[in-house]
Amino acid sequence: MADTPGFFGRLANPTFFLKLSGAVLPWLTGLTVILMLVGLYLVFFFAPPDYQQGETVKIMFIHAPSAWLAMMGYSIVTIASIGSLIWRHPMADVAAKAALPIGACFTLLALITGSLWGKPMWGTYWVWDARLTSVLILFFLYLGLMALWQAIEEPSRAGRAAAILAIVGSVNLPIIKFSVDWWHTLHQPASLTRLDAPAIHPSILIPLLVMMVAFTALFFVLHLTAMRTEVLRRRVQALRLTQVDAARAGEGARA
Protein backbone atom coordinates (compact mmCIF):
# COMPACT_ATOMS: atom_id res chain seq x y z
CA MET A 1 0.00 0.00 0.00
CA ALA A 2 2.93 2.26 0.72
CA ASP A 3 4.29 1.88 -2.83
CA THR A 4 1.08 2.36 -4.82
CA PRO A 5 -1.34 4.49 -2.82
CA GLY A 6 -5.02 3.78 -3.60
CA PHE A 7 -7.74 6.41 -3.57
CA PHE A 8 -7.75 6.70 0.22
CA GLY A 9 -4.00 6.70 0.30
CA ARG A 10 -3.94 9.63 -2.12
CA LEU A 11 -6.76 11.35 -0.21
CA ALA A 12 -4.54 11.17 2.85
CA ASN A 13 -2.16 13.52 1.04
CA PRO A 14 -3.15 16.99 2.32
CA THR A 15 -2.40 18.73 -0.99
CA PHE A 16 -4.51 16.26 -2.96
CA PHE A 17 -7.26 16.56 -0.34
CA LEU A 18 -7.29 20.38 -0.62
CA LYS A 19 -7.51 20.15 -4.40
CA LEU A 20 -10.28 17.56 -4.47
CA SER A 21 -12.36 19.06 -1.66
CA GLY A 22 -12.01 22.49 -3.23
CA ALA A 23 -13.48 21.13 -6.44
CA VAL A 24 -16.28 19.19 -4.72
CA LEU A 25 -17.37 21.80 -2.15
CA PRO A 26 -19.18 24.30 -4.44
CA TRP A 27 -21.27 21.49 -5.95
CA LEU A 28 -21.99 19.93 -2.60
CA THR A 29 -22.96 23.33 -1.18
CA GLY A 30 -25.36 23.93 -4.09
CA LEU A 31 -26.87 20.46 -3.63
CA THR A 32 -27.33 21.14 0.10
CA VAL A 33 -29.13 24.44 -0.55
CA ILE A 34 -31.48 22.78 -3.08
CA LEU A 35 -32.20 19.80 -0.80
CA MET A 36 -32.80 22.11 2.17
CA LEU A 37 -35.23 24.30 0.20
CA VAL A 38 -37.13 21.28 -1.18
CA GLY A 39 -37.16 19.69 2.30
CA LEU A 40 -38.43 22.82 4.05
CA TYR A 41 -41.08 23.32 1.36
CA LEU A 42 -42.30 19.75 1.85
CA VAL A 43 -42.25 20.15 5.64
CA PHE A 44 -44.31 23.33 5.66
CA PHE A 45 -46.60 22.90 2.64
CA PHE A 46 -46.86 19.16 2.00
CA ALA A 47 -46.61 17.33 5.35
CA PRO A 48 -50.02 17.16 7.10
CA PRO A 49 -50.41 17.66 10.85
CA ASP A 50 -50.19 14.41 12.84
CA TYR A 51 -53.41 12.79 14.08
CA GLN A 52 -52.30 13.16 17.71
CA GLN A 53 -49.50 15.71 17.79
CA GLY A 54 -51.05 18.26 15.45
CA GLU A 55 -48.51 20.79 14.12
CA THR A 56 -46.04 19.89 16.87
CA VAL A 57 -44.95 17.01 14.62
CA LYS A 58 -43.00 19.60 12.58
CA ILE A 59 -40.33 19.63 15.31
CA MET A 60 -39.49 16.06 14.32
CA PHE A 61 -38.28 17.20 10.88
CA ILE A 62 -35.40 19.01 12.62
CA HIS A 63 -35.06 16.70 15.60
CA ALA A 64 -34.65 13.35 13.83
CA PRO A 65 -32.06 14.57 11.25
CA SER A 66 -30.10 16.32 14.04
CA ALA A 67 -30.10 13.17 16.15
CA TRP A 68 -29.00 11.15 13.12
CA LEU A 69 -26.08 13.55 12.51
CA ALA A 70 -25.14 13.43 16.19
CA MET A 71 -24.68 9.67 15.76
CA MET A 72 -23.15 9.83 12.26
CA GLY A 73 -20.72 12.55 13.39
CA TYR A 74 -19.51 10.41 16.26
CA SER A 75 -19.22 7.38 13.96
CA ILE A 76 -16.96 9.43 11.68
CA VAL A 77 -14.89 10.52 14.70
CA THR A 78 -14.58 6.87 15.78
CA ILE A 79 -13.57 5.57 12.34
CA ALA A 80 -11.07 8.41 11.89
CA SER A 81 -9.68 7.72 15.36
CA ILE A 82 -9.14 4.04 14.56
CA GLY A 83 -7.42 5.15 11.35
CA SER A 84 -5.32 7.58 13.32
CA LEU A 85 -4.17 4.97 15.83
CA ILE A 86 -3.39 2.30 13.25
CA TRP A 87 -1.89 4.35 10.40
CA ARG A 88 -0.70 7.34 12.50
CA HIS A 89 -1.69 9.63 9.66
CA PRO A 90 -2.29 13.33 10.42
CA MET A 91 -5.24 13.50 7.98
CA ALA A 92 -7.16 11.00 10.13
CA ASP A 93 -6.60 13.33 13.10
CA VAL A 94 -7.78 16.27 11.00
CA ALA A 95 -10.97 14.39 10.03
CA ALA A 96 -11.71 13.44 13.64
CA LYS A 97 -10.97 16.89 15.07
CA ALA A 98 -12.98 18.74 12.41
CA ALA A 99 -16.09 16.62 13.01
CA LEU A 100 -16.21 17.35 16.78
CA PRO A 101 -17.78 20.84 16.97
CA ILE A 102 -20.20 20.01 14.14
CA GLY A 103 -21.35 16.81 15.87
CA ALA A 104 -21.63 18.66 19.17
CA CYS A 105 -23.85 21.33 17.59
CA PHE A 106 -26.22 18.78 16.07
CA THR A 107 -26.34 16.84 19.34
CA LEU A 108 -27.28 20.03 21.17
CA LEU A 109 -29.87 20.79 18.49
CA ALA A 110 -31.37 17.30 18.92
CA LEU A 111 -31.49 17.78 22.71
CA ILE A 112 -33.10 21.24 22.50
CA THR A 113 -35.69 20.35 19.84
CA GLY A 114 -36.50 17.12 21.68
CA SER A 115 -37.00 19.08 24.87
CA LEU A 116 -39.30 21.58 23.14
CA TRP A 117 -41.30 18.66 21.70
CA GLY A 118 -41.39 16.86 25.04
CA LYS A 119 -43.09 19.67 26.93
CA PRO A 120 -46.35 19.72 24.93
CA MET A 121 -46.37 15.96 24.14
CA TRP A 122 -45.03 14.19 27.24
CA GLY A 123 -45.72 17.00 29.68
CA THR A 124 -42.05 17.53 30.60
CA TYR A 125 -38.94 19.13 29.11
CA TRP A 126 -36.59 16.49 30.43
CA VAL A 127 -36.54 13.07 32.06
CA TRP A 128 -33.58 10.87 32.93
CA ASP A 129 -34.55 7.93 30.77
CA ALA A 130 -31.96 5.79 28.96
CA ARG A 131 -32.29 7.51 25.55
CA LEU A 132 -32.15 11.10 26.76
CA THR A 133 -29.36 10.40 29.24
CA SER A 134 -27.18 8.51 26.73
CA VAL A 135 -27.53 11.36 24.20
CA LEU A 136 -26.57 13.88 26.88
CA ILE A 137 -23.47 11.72 27.56
CA LEU A 138 -22.72 11.85 23.81
CA PHE A 139 -22.85 15.66 23.98
CA PHE A 140 -20.42 15.67 26.92
CA LEU A 141 -18.14 13.25 25.03
CA TYR A 142 -17.97 15.71 22.13
CA LEU A 143 -17.17 18.56 24.55
CA GLY A 144 -14.58 16.42 26.36
CA LEU A 145 -12.84 15.54 23.08
CA MET A 146 -12.78 19.20 22.03
CA ALA A 147 -11.32 20.14 25.42
CA LEU A 148 -8.67 17.41 25.07
CA TRP A 149 -7.57 18.79 21.69
CA GLN A 150 -7.25 22.23 23.30
CA ALA A 151 -5.41 20.94 26.36
CA ILE A 152 -2.52 19.20 24.55
CA GLU A 153 -0.39 21.50 22.44
CA GLU A 154 1.45 19.02 20.21
CA PRO A 155 -1.01 17.86 17.49
CA SER A 156 0.18 14.26 17.16
CA ARG A 157 0.01 13.66 20.94
CA ALA A 158 -3.37 15.42 21.20
CA GLY A 159 -4.59 13.32 18.29
CA ARG A 160 -3.58 10.06 19.91
CA ALA A 161 -5.12 10.93 23.30
CA ALA A 162 -8.34 12.12 21.65
CA ALA A 163 -8.46 9.01 19.45
CA ILE A 164 -8.27 6.70 22.49
CA LEU A 165 -11.00 8.64 24.32
CA ALA A 166 -13.14 8.71 21.16
CA ILE A 167 -12.90 4.93 20.68
CA VAL A 168 -13.71 4.32 24.35
CA GLY A 169 -16.70 6.64 24.03
CA SER A 170 -17.95 4.82 20.94
CA VAL A 171 -19.49 2.10 23.16
CA ASN A 172 -22.14 4.75 23.79
CA LEU A 173 -23.32 4.59 20.16
CA PRO A 174 -25.07 1.18 20.32
CA ILE A 175 -26.40 2.14 23.75
CA ILE A 176 -28.06 5.24 22.27
CA LYS A 177 -29.44 3.31 19.31
CA PHE A 178 -30.85 0.37 21.26
CA SER A 179 -31.71 2.15 24.54
CA VAL A 180 -35.35 2.33 23.49
CA ASP A 181 -35.45 -1.43 22.87
CA TRP A 182 -33.37 -2.65 25.82
CA TRP A 183 -35.07 -0.67 28.58
CA HIS A 184 -38.43 0.95 29.26
CA THR A 185 -37.90 4.56 28.22
CA LEU A 186 -40.19 7.54 27.86
CA HIS A 187 -38.72 8.11 24.39
CA GLN A 188 -40.56 6.20 21.66
CA PRO A 189 -38.85 3.36 19.76
CA ALA A 190 -37.39 3.87 16.26
CA SER A 191 -39.90 4.72 13.51
CA LEU A 192 -37.57 4.50 10.52
CA THR A 193 -35.09 1.69 11.11
CA ARG A 194 -37.42 -1.21 11.76
CA LEU A 195 -37.49 -4.71 10.29
CA ASP A 196 -41.01 -4.12 8.96
CA ALA A 197 -42.17 -1.00 7.13
CA PRO A 198 -41.55 2.44 8.72
CA ALA A 199 -44.27 3.44 11.19
CA ILE A 200 -44.69 6.79 9.46
CA HIS A 201 -47.26 7.62 6.80
CA PRO A 202 -45.64 8.45 3.39
CA SER A 203 -46.95 12.05 3.55
CA ILE A 204 -44.80 12.60 6.65
CA LEU A 205 -42.07 10.09 5.77
CA ILE A 206 -41.04 11.65 2.43
CA PRO A 207 -40.41 15.17 3.83
CA LEU A 208 -38.51 13.57 6.73
CA LEU A 209 -36.27 11.54 4.41
CA VAL A 210 -35.54 14.62 2.25
CA MET A 211 -34.62 16.54 5.41
CA MET A 212 -32.38 13.64 6.52
CA VAL A 213 -30.49 13.72 3.19
CA ALA A 214 -30.32 17.55 3.26
CA PHE A 215 -28.90 17.56 6.82
CA THR A 216 -26.39 14.85 5.87
CA ALA A 217 -25.23 16.92 2.89
CA LEU A 218 -24.97 19.96 5.17
CA PHE A 219 -22.82 17.95 7.57
CA PHE A 220 -20.38 17.02 4.82
CA VAL A 221 -20.18 20.62 3.59
CA LEU A 222 -19.34 21.77 7.12
CA HIS A 223 -16.99 18.83 7.74
CA LEU A 224 -15.01 19.30 4.51
CA THR A 225 -14.75 23.05 5.17
CA ALA A 226 -13.58 22.44 8.74
CA MET A 227 -11.04 19.86 7.53
CA ARG A 228 -9.66 22.31 4.94
CA THR A 229 -9.40 24.99 7.63
CA GLU A 230 -7.54 22.60 9.92
CA VAL A 231 -5.10 21.57 7.16
CA LEU A 232 -4.39 25.22 6.35
CA ARG A 233 -4.10 26.09 10.04
CA ARG A 234 -1.47 23.39 10.46
CA ARG A 235 0.42 24.69 7.43
CA VAL A 236 0.44 28.24 8.81
CA GLN A 237 1.75 26.89 12.09
CA ALA A 238 4.48 24.91 10.32
CA LEU A 239 5.46 28.01 8.30
CA ARG A 240 5.65 30.11 11.46
CA LEU A 241 7.89 27.52 13.10
CA THR A 242 10.30 27.47 10.14
CA GLN A 243 10.35 31.30 10.17
CA VAL A 244 11.19 31.32 13.87
CA ASP A 245 13.89 28.72 13.27
CA ALA A 246 15.29 30.74 10.38
CA ALA A 247 15.29 33.93 12.47
CA ARG A 248 17.06 32.13 15.31
CA ALA A 249 19.63 30.71 12.92
CA GLY A 250 20.19 34.20 11.49
CA GLU A 251 20.73 35.67 14.96
CA GLY A 252 23.12 32.87 15.81
CA ALA A 253 25.17 33.59 12.69
CA ARG A 254 25.40 37.33 13.51
CA ALA A 255 26.48 36.80 17.12
Binding site: Y51, P189, H201
Partner: peptide, 14 residues
Amino acid sequence: LAKHDENYMPPEVA
Protein backbone atom coordinates in the same frame (compact mmCIF):
# COMPACT_ATOMS: atom_id res chain seq x y z
CA LEU B 1 -46.51 11.91 31.62
CA ALA B 2 -47.92 10.85 28.27
CA LYS B 3 -45.83 8.38 26.30
CA HIS B 4 -45.98 8.87 22.57
CA ASP B 5 -45.66 5.84 20.28
CA GLU B 6 -43.61 5.65 17.09
CA ASN B 7 -46.57 6.00 14.69
CA TYR B 8 -47.02 9.17 12.67
CA MET B 9 -49.91 9.74 10.26
CA PRO B 10 -52.39 12.40 9.16
CA PRO B 11 -55.80 12.47 10.96
CA GLU B 12 -57.70 11.23 7.86
CA VAL B 13 -55.51 8.12 7.64
CA ALA B 14 -55.94 7.36 11.33
